[in-house]
């Protein structure tokens, strides 16, 4: 596997991960496929620089890596963004802002999480103030491994996400909508009294019923 000529290192791992993602998009109509294809061609990124990963996000837009050729470009506000990139470990304080930004994004929206910190807290695993498993608070669509992942890995992750969008697979935002009570309960557990006001999320429940 690791000795193939057309891939190396994490590329091969990525390929293994993607290999068993649903292959057929036969269930989709022409319109849905066209929409999916258009959506994946243009991703506006809200880069949330929480940890050290922020330093790897910047070169992505520069001449060397040029993410714009994939249609990936930065957005200034969450209202205009499609992808939220969580770059590294999250303190409880930052998580509140991340959730707020995520809920302000317009669907369809996706979350990419960088590095091991977002999976298990990484080197901050025993800190009282660090979020260990990001997926319990907001739905993560794509993890990019590494500590921290290089810009090439980021691009690889983005293209994998684009592939999923193109195939019209259900994104994390649908999971969030369906399981809003579970997510909110998890959030409440860390925030306690410090929850954002109810108007920021109660429309989710209204939409479900």
């Amino acid at each position: 596997m690791y000795h193939k000529s057309d891939c190396e290192g994490f590329q091969c791992e990525q390929r293994m991960l993607e290999a068993n993602l649903g292959q057929d998009d036969a269930g989709l109509g022409v319109v849905e496929r066209l929409i999916g294809w258009l959506r994946q061609r243009s991703l506006f990124v809200l880069a949330y620089g929480t940890g050290c990963g922020a330093i790897e996000m910047r070169p992505l837009m520069t001449s060397r890596f040029d993410a714009e050729r994939f249609g990936i470009i930065g957005a200034a506000t969450p209202r205009q963004a499609d992808v939220l990139v969580i770059s590294g470990y999250l303190a409880v304080k930052t998580l509140k802002r991340v959730i707020r930004s995520y809920e302000q994004m317009q669907e369809p929206k996706y979350v990419i999480a960088l590095g091991s910190c977002t999976i298990n807290g990484g080197m901050y695993w025993d800190s009282y103030n660090t979020i260990k498993c990001l997926d319990h608070y907001i739905p993560v669509d794509m993890y990019i491994n590494g500590c921290m992942p290089r810009p090439e890995a980021l691009i690889e992750g983005f293209t994998a996400l684009q592939e999923r969008i193109r195939r019209g697979e259900p994104g994390g935002y649908q999971r969030y909508r369906d399981n809003i009570d579970w997510y909110k309960a998890n959030q409440r557990r860390v925030f306690g009294d410090n929850m954002p006001p109810a108007y920021t999320y109660d429309w989710y429940s209204e939409g479900a019923t």
Binding site: I35, L38, R39, R41, S42, T62, S63, D66, R69, G71
Partner: peptide, 18 residues
């Protein structure tokens, strides 16, 4: 750099309209 395809603005616009 290579830059986006010349159709990129169409994609962006369509994405937002959809």
């Amino acid at each position: 750099r290579w830059g986006p395809s010349i159709w990129q603005n169409l994609y962006d616009n369509m994405k937002f309209l959809l």
